[in-house]
Structures are given as structure tokens and as C-alpha cells.
Amino acid sequence: MRLNSLDFEKKPPYFRPPKYTGITLSLLSIFVLVSMLAVWEKMANVPELPEISLLAWEKSKQPIEKIRVAFQKEASCIINTTYLSLSELSLLPDLNSKADKPQLDILLLPKIDRLKSYFENKQYDNRGIVAYFKENIHGSAQNLTMDRPSPLYSLINRSKQSHSKILSFLRFLKAPTQGQVEFAANGWTGVDEDHWDIAPELKIYAVQSSQSWLRNSAQSFAKKEGFELSISFLDEKNLHKSLKILTKADNKDYLPDLVCFPNNSPIPKGMHPYFSELNNDSHISAMGHSFYIRKKSPLSKTIQKFLRHLNESK
């Protein structure tokens, strides 16, 4: 028994605690400190989210709040919203006053007495109707009830027109699968606009002879609406070749949204299943050209606006 106990005492222990010297502990502390500083530096460099200021009619609060939250997730921005009643909107300071420059980015207003002065104001640009609110009007004579649509107009601060987030939010409001869904769910009547894309691109193929009047108009329109513009000017022979190749490709998304040909010029036969000739205005025809739109273009409504823009800029 004595020998067994001595043998047990001679066996090494199963676990030996590490022996740290002062130098090792100092190096470990420095490593931890450097790691913390690196993490802190990355946290400090997080960019601030862009902000949009919005003033809206209080009747639109329910759909606008849902639209606002959805857009903030899609576009990584913050929308600060203020809702006012009709009586409060009528007390707003006159935008024509030079005392204070307008700070609001977007106005969503019903048809009020002062709306005309807002349209005429140089600080704001009328961007059309977003949706229609159905008001119940009770007739006292025959005890009738009828719905009267009240339009909700959108106005944008002209000094912020190049703000891509603001323009994207306006498109989001009017998109059939985005903002219009929330308006419809709350009893509003919608508008007919293109589907929303965070970075839409309008592709145009045109003959070289149209460059003098088409390029500048297309660029100014793209800047106003907030989308990318891809425009190619080719001689008529190369334009035919390019379209012939693209119409035979498996992926038809490579096709341009809009094609500009000289008047009375034959177009490639392969174009007919995918393009249709637009009812070109006399101003455009007078320039000696015709437009063809891709039938499945996601920007068909935008193209119609572009043609109106061309006519107005002549």
C-alpha cells in the first residue's frame, strides 16, 4: 500500500495552468485595446441617412404612414412627416413671401383655395395627382349620398429636384404595386403610372440625324424625373443591324424602350412583334422623325410623359 501511494504522487497532474509573464499580459492588453479602437472607428464612419421633409393632408395619414415605412426600408432614408387638417393648411404662410425660404421637400395637398398660388410659386413644382380621396356628399333635397373624388396633389421643392430620394419617393407613391396598394386599401382611387424601380433606366436608340434636338431634351427630362438615361445615336444602317440582332436575342430586356427613325423609313421586320408606332405629334413629325415604343417596356407611362416634354420644348 505504501508503494502504491508513492507511485500516485509521482504521476504528473492532468491539468497545468498556463504561466503568463508580465510581458505576455501587456501584449494581450495592447491587442484587446487595438481591436476595440478598430471596431469604434468603423462604427464612427457609418454614413448618416438622407432625410426628406413631407407635409401632407391629414386625410392621407393612414396610407402615407404605411407607404413611408415601406419606402424607408427600400431606399435607406428617413421621411419626416407633418399632417395638417384643411383649416390648418389654409393658415400656412404664403409661399410667395420672401421672408422665409421653404424648407419642405414635398407637399401633398388637397384642392384648397391657396393651391393655385402654390402652383404659380417659383419655389415648388407641380408633379401631378397622387390619388383621389372619396368624400361622401349628402344631398339635403332628395336625401341622396354621392362620392366626390378629391385629388391629392404633389409638389416638390424646386431647389431639391436633383435629390434622387425625393423623386424616387414620388414614383413610389404612384406605383401600382407600391403606394397605390395602400391608397386603395384605405378607399382612395388611384392613378395609372409605371411600376416602381429604385434605379429605373430609359433606353433610347435613335438615328444620328435626331441628335441635335433629342439629346438635350432627353437629358433634361431624365434629370427632372430622376432616372438613368441610356441613349445611343447611330446611322440608319447600323441602327437596323443593332435592332435586328437584339430582336433575335433570347433576353428581350436588352431591347431599347424607345426607337427613333426618320419619317417614312422602313423598319426591320423583326421589330413588329415587339414595337408599335406611337401616335407622333405634329411637332415631332415636323422634325422628320417617328418614334416606336417597346410593347412590354416597364416605362410606357414615362415615355408618354417624355413625348409631351419633347413637344413642350420645341
Rank of each mutant, 00 (worst) to 15 (best):
L167A: 04
L27A: 15
I303F: 05
L104F: 11
Y205S: 05
S220L: 06
L202F: 08
L86R: 15
T82M: 15
A38V: 12
S5Y: 15
V39L: 15
T177S: 11
S282G: 10
K122E: 11
S117M: 09
W213C: 09
F227M: 12
S90E: 09
E58Q: 12
I112S: 06
D94W: 07
D257W: 08
S26C: 07
G270K: 09
D7A: 08
G288V: 02
F261S: 00
Y118N: 01
L234P: 03
Q62K: 09
P149M: 11
L229H: 08
L84S: 08
K241I: 15
S285Y: 04
E236W: 04
A185G: 01
K174Q: 06
S276Y: 08
F275A: 06
K98A: 05
S140Q: 14
N238C: 11
M43Y: 15
K11M: 06
N263I: 08
L108E: 05
N279D: 10
M43R: 15
N280P: 07
K174E: 05
K101Y: 15
K296P: 02
K224Q: 13
K98S: 03
M146F: 14
M271N: 06
T24Q: 14
S217H: 03
K160Y: 07
K134R: 08
K301W: 00
L55H: 01
L33T: 14
M146Q: 15
F172C: 03
T189M: 14
I23E: 13
T24R: 15
S217W: 00
T177E: 09
L95Y: 09
Y118L: 05
G190M: 01
Q304M: 05
D253G: 07
K165A: 00
N143E: 14
L92F: 07
V69C: 10
Y124I: 09
